[in-house]
Structures are given as structure tokens and as C-alpha cells.
């Protein structure tokens, strides 16, 4: 739709980057707001956020390299190992689940370094993740990537100037669907943050609900460059694993709570 915003003269910024950063800023503000429920030091949370961001960028890039290995090799074979090629390669190509797993690894290592349980941080961060993701998906819609299946108007939208979507074909706005569902998830988790006593269950609920959202929206995705295995996309496989993991953790938590009572 509008992948670039022209400001003045030749000065321009990418809409996707702007949306991602806005999402990150609101997510961090929500996390600092939720710190009051756990008596957290806010600078500790900011430091944790820095490590999560580093881990997320590393994980997102690594997973992209793994699932698009042939394409990456092709780029470097055709253009050589120059600063321009490396710069182009580093600036694009990230996968959300890689960022999720990389960020999770980073917070686990940080919690061990700080000698605190990782759940103390995850409880604070959980409602912020779908909020940031919702903004990111709006960025995807504006840039014209992560596009949906061909769909008839008025629901199907033609995306002029899209950076990846096929031109002049009405496509299902799966980015807006996923953004709306993520925003709804963030609202639900924040309401639970205020209402429930066992706040670790917010983390488990995110691990259950987001994979369901992802598997549902994957049926409307049309960008096949993401990689497939045995007929399922890599995101569907990872979502199924995380869903099972979340259900097991929630059931274990409920059993432990009932035993303590």
C-alpha cells in the first residue's frame, strides 16, 4: 500500500520500520506500567528489554537464514561477499517465530544472570508481545508483504506499490486480520493481569491462544517463500509445538495450585 513515507525533499522512511518501532515503544510502556503488579525495578526491566531485543533480532535473522538457505546462498553467489550485499542482507529478512524464540532465550539467560526466576519477567512482558505484534502486522499491510490469498472485493484489496505482493490482484487482508486478533489478545491478557491472582497463567494463555490465531491466519496466507515441510508451513509446525507446550504448562500449574489448596 504505502511502503515509503516521503517527508521532505529526498528524505524518506519505511512504513514497516515505523510501525515496528511504534509497536515496540507502546509494548515497553505497557510493560513498565505492569511492573507495579510485581514490585519490579523499572531499570531492571529496561535492561531485560535490551537483551530481549538483541536476542529477538538474532533469532529472527537466524531462523530466516535456516528456512531460506537456498535463496541466501544464491544472493551471495551472484553478488559476492561485499559490504553492499551484507548490508542489504542484514536489513531485510526476519521471521517472527525466530525473534520470539531468540527473545525467549535471551530473557532466560538474563534471568539466570540476575539470579531471578524467568517467570518473574515473563509475567510482566506477556501482554506487551501481542501489542507489538499487532503494530508489526499493520506495518506488513502498509508495506505489502506477508500477503493473503486472492479474494474477491470488497474484502479483497488490491495493493499498489506493494514490495512483495502480486500487483493488480485483490488479496485477502490477512495482515489486518492478524493485527486485530493480536490486539484483542493483548486486551484480554491485560484484563487478566488486573483481575487474576495467579499471573503466571497469563504467560501460559499467550502460549495457547497465539498459536491458535497463527494456525487460523496461516490458512489465508499466500506468500510461499516462508518455507514448507510435509505440507505444513514452518510457522504452523512451530505453532503446534508451542500450543502443546502451553497446554501442558497450564495444566501443570492448575494441578500444583489445587494441591497447594
Amino acid at each position: 500500500m504505502y511502503p515509503i513515507i516521503h517527508l521532505f525533499g529526498n528524505f524518506q522512511i519505511g512504513t514497516y520500520g515505523l510501525c515496528c518501532v511504534l509497536g515496540g515503544v507502546f509494548a515497553v510502556l505497557l510493560m513498565l506500567w505492569n511492573a507495579k503488579y510485581f514490585n519490579h525495578n523499572r531499570y531492571d526491566l529496561i535492561e531485560a528489554t535490551a537483551f530481549i531485543l538483541l536476542g529477538a533480532l538474532t533469532g529472527a535473522k537466524l531462523l530466516y537464514i535456516i528456512i531460506s538457505w537456498d535463496y541466501v546462498i544464491n544472493i551471495f553467489n551472484n553478488n559476492g561477499l561485499s559490504i553492499e550485499t551484507i548490508s542489504y542482507f542484514m536489513q531485510s529478512g526476519f521471521v517472527f517465530y525466530g525473534g520470539f524464540l531468540g527473545g525467549l532465550t535471551a530473557i532466560i539467560l538474563y534471568a539466570k544472570f540476575q539470579k531471578k526466576p524467568v517467570m518473574e519477567y515473563l509475567k510482566c512482558i506477556a501482554p506487551s508481545i501481542p501489542l507489538a505484534h499487532a503494530f508489526g502486522r499493520i506495518g506488513c499491510f502498509m508495506a505489502g508483504c506477508c500477503y493473503g490469498i486472492p479474494f474477491d472485493p470488497p474484502i479483497g484489496i488490491i495493493m499498489p506499490d506493494a514490495i512483495a505482493a502480486p500487483q493488480n490482484i485483490p488479496l485477502f487482508p490477512v495482515q489486518l486480520l492478524e493485527s486485530t486478533l493480536n490486539l484483542l489478545l493483548a486486551v484480554i491478557l491485560q484484563i487478566l493481569m488486573i483481575k487474576i491472582k495467579n499471573k503466571e497463567r497469563i504467560v501460559y494463555l499467550y502460549l495457547i491462544i497465539y498459536p491458535v490465531i497463527r494456525i487460523f491466519t496461516e490458512q489465508f496466507r499466500y506468500d510461499s517463500e516462508r518455507g514448507f515441510f510435509l505440507g505444513f508451513s514452518t510457522s504452523e509446525i512451530i505453532s503446534a509445538c508451542i500450543l502443546i507446550f502451553g497446554v501442558v504448562l497450564l495444566l501443570k500449574n492448575i494441578c500444583i495450585t489445587k494441591k497447594q489448596q
Binding site: P3, I4, N10, F11, Q12, I13, G14, Y16, G17, L18, C20, V21, G24, V25, A60, Y64, S68, Y71, V72, I75, S87, Y88, Q91, S92, G93, F94, V95, F96, C140, A143, G144, C145, C146, I163, A164, D223, E225
Partner: peptide, 23 residues
């Protein structure tokens, strides 16, 4: 960090332009 991220996060797929400050 904010300025760097705004300027240089492109789309998650490789088939896209590299956006820079100057066209």
C-alpha cells in the same frame, strides 16, 4: 536505537527494496 530501527527494518521477505534515508 529508534532512529536506526525506523530507517533500516525492511520487510521480512527478501524480495523487497532496501529503504534508505535518501532515495
Amino acid at each position: 536505537l529508534v532512529i536506526s530501527l525506523i530507517c533500516f527494518i525492511s520487510c521480512s521477505c527478501m524480495d523487497c527494496y532496501s529503504y534508505k534515508l535518501v532515495d
